[in-house]
Amino acid sequence: MWRYLGPLIGVLALGAIFAVTLARIGTGELDVREIPSPLIGKPAPQFELPSVQDENERISTAALAGRPWVLNVWGTWCPGCRQEHDTLLRISSDSVVPIIGLNWKDERSLAMQWLTQLGNPYTKVAFDPEGDVAIDWGVYGSPETFLVSAEGIVIAKHIGPMTEQIWREKFLPLLAEKSGGGA
């Protein structure tokens, strides 16, 4: 009997997997294009880059050690970055955590213009025209936003435009947890 029911059972199991996958795509729980970062739980990659606004100012991760911070990867060529800009401005006005910008594969003058016209949500903005630092952080498309703990560990990554909801439900609880655990 099993010999003849075997194919049916196999097909039904496969169908169930497909159905669950589709349902998760439908609810937005699963994005087949999203690539999870292997950096979560690992020390944040170090960098030292010039600032967008001032070529001579160096921005280094070493100086950020000891407190949590956010890295936001953006470029003036990226529509999603324009979309999230107001959210970033609002988050930065709360001053919960410093937001460091990583200006990725961009031109200095365009980036400066963007910041002047749209407002600057960043504590500091590092300039990475070649994309070397972005590769170290495993960036594959902007905007991407990382949360780094006080111990210098990457604890969260969001791919795509930052939203109020994601900030409140994903980033803030992690921040509270980490600072609570540290105290």
């Binding site: 690539i35 970062s37 292997p38 950096l39 590769i135 952080w137 495993g138 594959y140």
Partner: peptide, 8 residues
């Protein structure tokens, strides 16, 4: 590459 982007 995998340290940065995963096995993907």
């Amino acid at each position: 590459m995998t340290e940065r982007y995963g096995d993907f």
